[in-house]
Computed example of a mutant assay.
Amino acid sequence: MKLVVLDCDGTLVDSQNGICEAMTHAFTGFGLVPPTRAATLAIVGLSLPEAFMALAPEQDDALRAKMVARYKSAFLEIRREPDLHEPLFDGIAAAVETFGGRDDVVLGIATGKSKKGIDRLFAREGWGQRFVTVQTSDDHPSKPHPAMLRAAMAEAGVGPERTVMVGDTTFDMEMARAAGVGALGVGWGYHSIDELQRAGAHAVVGNCHDLPADIDAFFSTRERAA
C-alpha cells in the first residue's frame, strides 16, 4: 500500500483571492499597511500564528493574536460572498477519483487549513470517503514540522518509504524531508519550481492532469533505487 498525502490550498484548491483579501482586512483593521499579494502568497501553507509572525514580525504577540482572529473572521465573511469561488485546479477532481478507485493507494491530507475548512471542501466535492487520514493545523505544529505526516502515516499504517507528500510550497517539501518521505512539488501553486527544488523536492509536477502518472513514476523510481 502507498500513501499519497496532499496539501490543500495551492495544491488542490485555488483559494488565493480569499486569502489575500482576508489578510488585507487583518492588517488594515489595526491601522497597519497590508503585505503585498506576493508576500501573502509566500506564507500559504503555514498555520496562522506562524504566518503572522512572518508577515508582522515587528508586532507583539498580543496584537498578532488579534490579527489572527480578525483574519479568521474576515475569511468566513468573504466565503459567504456569492461571487467568491475557490475552485479545484483543473484536473484535481479526476486525480482524486483515479486514486480513489485503486486498491494500492490511499489518500491523506496535510494542511495549514482548519478542520472546518476541510470539512466544507469535502462536503462540496463529495470527498468524505476518499481520504483515510486528514491532518490539519488545529491539531499539529505548523509546517514544516513533520508531525502531520507522522500522524498520517500512523493512521494509514504506511511507512515513510511508501509515502509521498504532494504540495506547492517550500514548507511542504521541508516537512516531507523532515519526515523522511517523498517530496513531490506541484508547479501550479504559490511557490516557484525553483523554490520547491531548492527546498528539497525530489521532483515537480508541471500539470495537474499529469499528477497520477507522475506520482506512480515517483514510486517506481524510488522502488528501483531501493
Rank of each mutant, 00 (worst) to 15 (best):
L3R: 03
C8G: 06
T11Y: 10
V13M: 00
V13I: 14
Q16W: 11
N17A: 12
C20M: 02
C20E: 07
F27S: 00
T28L: 06
G29T: 07
G31H: 10
L32V: 05
P35S: 05
T36A: 02
I43H: 10
P49D: 01
E50Q: 15
E50F: 07
P57M: 04
A62D: 14
L63D: 01
R64D: 02
A65P: 07
A69F: 06
R70T: 13
R70E: 13
K72V: 11
K72S: 02
S73M: 12
I78E: 03
R79W: 07
R80L: 04
E81T: 12
H85W: 10
L88E: 10
A93T: 00
A94I: 03
A95K: 06
E97K: 14
G100Y: 12
G101T: 08
R102A: 01
V105S: 00
L107K: 05
I109M: 01
K113D: 10
S114R: 05
K116R: 15
R120N: 15
F122R: 14
E125L: 11
W127S: 11
R130S: 15
R130A: 14
F131Q: 13
V134A: 11
T136I: 05
D138Q: 11
D138R: 08
D139I: 09
P141M: 05
P141W: 04
P144F: 02
E155R: 15
G157W: 14
V164D: 03
V164K: 06
M165I: 10
M165P: 09
V166P: 02
D172L: 02
A176H: 03
G182F: 05
V186F: 06
S192F: 05
I193F: 09
E195D: 14
L196H: 10
A199T: 10
G200V: 13
G200R: 08
H202E: 11
H202L: 12
V204R: 04
G206N: 15
G206C: 01
N207E: 15
H209Q: 13
E223H: 09
R224C: 02
A225H: 11
A226P: 02
A226N: 01
